[in-house]
Design a protein around this nucleic acid. Sequence first.
DNA 1: GCAAAAGTTATGACGGAGGTAAAGTTAGAA
DNA 2: TTCTAACTTTACCTCCGTCATAACTTTTGC
Lengths: 219, 219
Amino acid sequence: MDIESSTTTDSAATGLREAKKRETRQLISDRATELFMAQGFERTTIAEIADAARVAKKTVTNYFPRKEDLALDHQDEFVTGLARAVAAREPGESAFVALRRALLSAVAAQDPVAGFAGPEFTRMIVESPTLSACLRGLHDQREEALAIALAAATGTSAADITPRTAASLLAGVHRVLFHRILDLTLAGHGGKEIAAILEAEATRAFALLEPALADYARA
Amino acid sequence: MDIESSTTTDSAATGLREAKKRETRQLISDRATELFMAQGFERTTIAEIADAARVAKKTVTNYFPRKEDLALDHQDEFVTGLARAVAAREPGESAFVALRRALLSAVAAQDPVAGFAGPEFTRMIVESPTLSACLRGLHDQREEALAIALAAATGTSAADITPRTAASLLAGVHRVLFHRILDLTLAGHGGKEIAAILEAEATRAFALLEPALADYARA
DNA sequence: GCAAAAGTTATGACGGAGGTAAAGTTAGAA
DNA sequence: TTCTAACTTTACCTCCGTCATAACTTTTGC
């Protein structure tokens, strides 16, 4: 899922114009990704991307208002992931258990949203201060969405300190493990190897938090 | 303490140049703060600040490489605060107890580093995406420094998942309460009132985490 | 005590991101 | 076919952050 809500529509509108729009957008995104991977995010200018895609500079910034939007996709899926895991938890399951299960299955599936993004993509992000800052913002939004979900699940106000603290703790564990995957990816480890390491470490990390939140927000 | 380590020296070096340097730096900082408060961070250009301080544009960016540096001072104190609290904990005291004590005393003292920065300053930060992103980065650095301190305190590697997770949890609580102070400041509450609210909420927030980390890194 | 050298500071000029306005072009409707 | 609305393009602008250059203060050699 992309940033724009328009992509949630089923491309039902009369095809030709919409189709060309999609193509143009995808073309720009592809060329941008290629250039970012090849020469880094900061070293790539919007003008270069526009030239590579054979469009005007303004067309690029029209589809992607900020340069970071060209690199970080699936933002909405990332931001809402934890909140959705809590909302979809099984009866009798606590938020803690649901989020631990979500992380372990994401690790087992080597889900890009959990941090399995490949060495080039990972290097692109950590080498760019702009993208790193953007990623921090996404983690923040994710925690905020989780706090709202926890407030709803426990029948408390979203301004209350308890759901906000719980969200911070739970999202914090996810964030630590996310960055652990990034670190291991940069160290040259393969996906399967990382998944094996992470399964053990995630279990330990959640075990540390378990005494505090094992029963919080039980459905 | 400022960003530059040069300010740690006692201004012993031959006076004239150093003195003028200090004066110029302070003058720029003062004019910048005035303008930021009056018309907001994003709406203030470096050229305006330079004009107000009667110096060249480049002189401003020479002292303050990035625009954010003009607004956010005391960065080092903020970043190292939690790690220092752990390093200076009393014998028999756990990291959890030391950090709870540090927060409660900072709240009682209405310490700016804890978030008591006044309504204008607070509004300046939250209304500026740039400054908000910068603040997120500082929180991140603070957590990282805490992780290193906890690894040292427990005799584990800084790459280990346990100190990193513990740092995330403890710094997370501090971050939630920091933003709570910001929210209450923006809502128009006074410092004493906020301190009273925060004392109760901080106690609750730490109580939530206590079962997990009460004995972690006991000195 | 003086002059040259060395390091530091301020200055003007430049590249890139992001935004606005107006004109040209193309898809879809009457 | 013709008109309307949208998307793309062009040109221009502001502003941040960096590069090479000029001016100054302190230090060093004589």
